[in-house]
Every structure is written in structure tokens, then in C-alpha cells.
């Protein structure tokens, strides 16, 4: 992806606690980030044991005020039945004109799904992550936008033959589908993995649209991703590799730094007070021209999925 603008995500932990960014401050940060051409805001689910404002709520709210920036929300498998999470993320994606994605965090199950888990002995978090990711992507494509007709003359809202149940039958989940709403303009929301070594590079590479690695994991990450993608039969350009940085040292030479490490963008997770975050945003190289940006997939330079728009 050389020559393309680098993707820049700004990470926020929104909440009431002193260690968190208040909603009002988040608003100011998003305004600055949008002006600076930042690709997306990442809203984390928790830091340590301390939960943030629910990221889907925070993203949907802030997106109601800022329409030209992407939204990446963290969501764990824990406490989230996949049908519910798939709906929330797709609703956000449609409401933002295809500017949403989810960082799916590996975890345990939820109270609703656990009661009917197909295989009660299945407990591995990485296995669950993969299954969950498949449920999400299948649900997101189960109601193709092209099925919506709105044919008033012939009284046909949608061509229901194009809308297909997913009938997912796994070890952790059984989900019939389809989803209640049509696919988004970017085909489906962006699916992002973090800590790929935990879930396994091979599993992540088979399905994710983007992978975030921590500062300590950057070395060799590009090679590991490339190798895993090749096994999965996918091209390198189908997945964005993002490095999460907790300071702004790399920013002055961002293009060169990214090229040297083989990454396609960064997630800025600057600790500390609001002025620090704002000055880091101000120091970013201007990302492209002002004016409307496109979908989150366009911002990450990853393709729309093949199935959804076919």
C-alpha cells in the first residue's frame, strides 16, 4: 500500500474517572481529529477493570455530531450475543455511511447464548473468537442492500429470495439469521483483530480486515501477517496492519517509520490529559485534502468484501 495515505486512528477511553476522557472532551477531540483528516476514532471497551462508556453508544452519539470520520468500537464476545452485536455494529455502519468497524475482543460467552451452547465443553477463547467473527461477517451479508426494492407499484419492499438465513451451527453458537437490515455501502463493517498472537495469526489472517499490534509486537508483524495471509489465500492488500503507539515519537517521520516497519497506519493511544491528545492530533501530517472522506474501508485502503455487493 505504498503511496497511499497512512491510516490514523485516535484511541479514546471515554468515561467519568480521572483516567478517562469526559464525553465533552471527547467531543472536542473528535472535532479536531475530523479537521485533521484522521481516519477514525477508536473507542475502547475498558482499561484494566475499569469500563468505558459503552463504545457503541458513545460512537453513535458522537457520530450524530461529526459525520466525516470513521468509528471503530471495541466489543468483547463476553456478554454479547453475536446477533445483537452484529445488529448494533451494522446499524452504526449504516447510520455513518459505511464508516464503522469493530475490534472484536476475545473473551467468554454471554448469558443468553451460554444457556443453549451447542457444545458446553468448548471453552477456548481463541476458538470462540474465530467462530464469533464468522457469525458476524455472515450476518452482515445476509440481507444484501440490493434486495431492497421499494417497488410501490407492485407492493414489493424487498426481494426476499436474495435475503438468506445464515443457519450458523457451530460449537459455541447457533444463529439462524438473517439480520433485520440491509448491508452497508462498504459491504460490511470492518472487522479488526488485536493481539493477533493470542488468537493466532493464521486464524486472524483468515477473516480480519485489519490487525492492530502493540508497540512491542511490531517487529516481524508484517512478515507474520504476510505468511498467514498467503496460507489463507488472501492478498496482503486485503488486510490493514496498524501499529498502536502510546506516544507521538513516530509522528515527525510517520511515512518513513511506517514503511520501515511495514505497517499501513497507526492507532494513537496517547495517555494523559486532553491538551496532550489535541497537540498530538495537531502534529499529524495533514491526511489528504479536506472535504468528504469515504468509507472506513476506503480510509484503511482495504477492499469491500466480494460477496456483499455481488
Amino acid at each position: 500500500m505504498s503511496g497511499e495515505a497512512l491510516a490514523v486512528l485516535v484511541e479514546l477511553d471515554v468515561g467519568d474517572a480521572p483516567s478517562q476522557v469526559s464525553l465533552a472532551d471527547a467531543d472536542a477531540i473528535v472535532a479536531a481529529a475530523q479537521d485533521a483528516g484522521v481516519t477514525a476514532i477508536r473507542l475502547v471497551d475498558h482499561v484494566g477493570d475499569h469500563v468505558s462508556v459503552d463504545p457503541t453508544v458513545a460512537a453513535a452519539h458522537l457520530a450524530g455530531r461529526y459525520g466525516d470520520i470513521g468509528w471503530v468500537v471495541d466489543a468483547p464476545t463476553t456478554h454479547n450475543a453475536p446477533y445483537n452485536l452484529a445488529r448494533r455494529i451494522l446499524s452504526l455502519d449504516r447510520a455513518t455511511g459505511g464508516r464503522a468497524g469493530v475490534v472484536l475482543l476475545a473473551g467468554v460467552g454471554d448469558e443468553v447464548s451460554d444457556a443453549t451452547a451447542p457444545d458446553p465443553d468448548a471453552t477456548d477463547a481463541a476458538d470462540r473468537w474465530v467462530e464469533y467473527a464468522h457469525v458476524l461477517t455472515q450476518l452482515w451479508e445476509s440481507f444484501p442492500a440490493a434486495a431492497l426494492l421499494g417497488d410501490q407499484e407492485n407492493a414489493v419492499v424487498a426481494d426476499d429470495a436474495m435475503i438468506r438465513p445464515v443457519d450458523f451451527d457451530g460449537r459455541f453458537y447457533r444463529v439462524a439469521g438473517p439480520l433485520d437490515g440491509p448491508s452497508s455501502v462498504q459491504g460490511r463493517p470492518v472487522l479488526i483483530a488485536v493481539a493477533p498472537a493470542d488468537v493466532g495469526w493464521a486464524r486472524v489472517a483468515a477473516i480480519a480486515d485489519a490487525v492492530v499490534v502493540g508497540y512491542g509486537e511490531i517487529g516481524g508483524a508484517a512478515e507474520k501477517l504476510e505468511a498467514a495471509l498467503s496460507v489463507a489465500g488472501r492478498r496482503r492488500g486485503e488486510v490493514a496492519l496498524l501499529a498502536r503507539l502510546d506516544d507521538d515519537r513516530a509522528i515527525p517521520e510517520l511515512q518513513a517509520w511506517s514503511a520501515a516497519h511495514g505497517v499501513d497506519g497507526i492507532v494513537l493511544a496517547v495517555d494523559g490529559a486532553v491538551p496532550g491528545i489535541l497537540s498530538t492530533i495537531a502534529s499529524l501530517p495533514q491526511q489528504g485534502s479536506s472535504g468528504r472522506h469515504g468509507t472506513l474501508r476506503a480510509g484503511l485502503a482495504v477492499p469491500n468484501p466480494r460477496g456483499a455487493l455481488a
Partner: peptide, 23 residues
């Protein structure tokens, strides 16, 4: 949390309420 099977002939609820209301 479902697609109403009547989708062929009538519009249905299709956006998750908490995300709509937050907006």
C-alpha cells in the same frame, strides 16, 4: 432482534434502537 418474515410486502424495523437513540 429478527427480520420480520413479512419483509417482501412491508417495511420493517431495521436499525438497532440504542444506536439510533444515541444519535
Amino acid at each position: 432482534p429478527l427480520l420480520d418474515p413479512s419483509i417482501r410486502h412491508r417495511t420493517g424495523n431495521n436499525l438497532e434502537p440504542t444506536t439510533v437513540l444515541a444519535r
